[in-house]
Design a protein around this nucleic acid. Sequence first.
DNA 1: GAACGTTATTCGATATATAGAACATCCTCG
DNA 2: CGAGGATGTTCTATATATCGAATAACGTTC
Lengths: 273, 273
Amino acid sequence: MDTKRQRMNSPDRELAIAVRASKAPAISRAAAVLRLLGKSDTPLGVQTIARELGLVPSTCLHVLRALVAEEFVSFDPDTKRYSLEAGVLTLARHWLRRNRFNDLAQPALDRISRTFDLTVLGVHIVGLDHIIVVATSQSSQNFQLSTQIGSRFPALISATGRCIAAFGDQDENDLEGRFKKLRWDEPPTFEEWKAQVRQTREQGFAVDAGNYIAGVTVVAAPVFRARGKLSHALVALGIGSALKRAGLPTLQNALLASAQSLSNQLSGEIDSE
Amino acid sequence: MDTKRQRMNSPDRELAIAVRASKAPAISRAAAVLRLLGKSDTPLGVQTIARELGLVPSTCLHVLRALVAEEFVSFDPDTKRYSLEAGVLTLARHWLRRNRFNDLAQPALDRISRTFDLTVLGVHIVGLDHIIVVATSQSSQNFQLSTQIGSRFPALISATGRCIAAFGDQDENDLEGRFKKLRWDEPPTFEEWKAQVRQTREQGFAVDAGNYIAGVTVVAAPVFRARGKLSHALVALGIGSALKRAGLPTLQNALLASAQSLSNQLSGEIDSE
DNA sequence: GAACGTTATTCGATATATAGAACATCCTCG
DNA sequence: CGAGGATGTTCTATATATCGAATAACGTTC
């Protein structure tokens, strides 16, 4: 029992607890395998995967074979290597089809992106762990700030994080624990951050002025799926200096207006209030 | 034991055998749940899912909870309904990033689509069961023939199917078994089909003249990942009559040329790790 | 070309995921 | 309101998925 944890690397720590907690550990393992294969630039062998995730090779093989059978993983019989298979695309397509936010948000993203020449994102807030980019409108200029649909970030980071803290419903202890784990270029103290969260709650949107990525200003406005149910956010990114020239207040208003309009459309009605 | 199979519907038959065969049945169940949620237009409850897939409710609940924990499924605590979560997007993004075919094929698809005013697809051949659309270029005219990235079709159907039969390596018995299960608008007999497969092998591309979808002609040319290893196909769809006007032979040549060029680029690989 | 360190894979014992029933909770309808 | 029939959820015995060692098939190095 001691020799086993000789070199526990981070992904497999989390996996270990997920496996222990769940009543369907095979699924956690499968998810871990899929994510590992996703990250890897090259196809991987059984041993490599097992070692990386802290799995027993034979178990790992079972998992891989099941994933191959389900067409989520491809297997090259010559090299005996595994990689992601196109089956994952099919799921993604279904998800995209069914989510009104994407279609509704795209025009707004495009308009703001064009007007201010910024990269603008629509992000989906999943659980309280992560956000996922679900729609983008890239500015022609800022290629360096490009992000892809499907990218995943920690929930509490940057401007979006302040929105989640401000408008989501979680207790402060949990919040502080998560906050401690974040990686910023210029980390704010927890006190500073709480103040910014408070301000976010008052003004209705959040700003990250170079904390997450040095030199980059991020503005985020919350979108609610139903009364008070935070589900998405609109996020604009730009080089700090350029953003000031473009007129930060104007951008904030535009983002906020679009976000509120989306909230109305998502919660179903043309409703008043 | 009798009462159980009162109303076995098709998806759960397959699931049952997959579960029995695999050494990681939880993963097959998870995949079935994901696909079911993908197909469904509305979020589903535990019982509904369990019934539809022939699962025990408690087991189904475990699977769902695991999938929620992995952020592949979202759970609405108010309605207690489950649906696909954006996590599936992340996997898809990784797959897309890593597949050179998509980037290489897109220009060719666009060119052919523009020249002949047709919908042109790049499809990936996964296993011998399915093909998945991985790149599209829609014609402006034929909106009715639109297909989305991620769409899944039986491997042996239509023109692509004849390519797979012609250039893949499978035995005839297996082939006939699979052929019998296909659904066509105007089904060819197995003999007719075999003749067409032979012709496909000779001329290097396949044509489906209204068999799969009445009135629609489909042309497909194979793309090889390595010497003789069939992996993708380029597929052009058009209303039969319009296609004749546009010049079927010219289209066939263009498709074949692009497919061969892609094969070279994919297998060419000047570099060897 | 033999010996070695890899790797993938099989196989049997046991910890445990699953099935099925019991429980709890919500709605619907008389 | 209160009975009925859904639903989601917990609980536990047992069939079985997982582990770990043993085997087989590599590729490398000396």
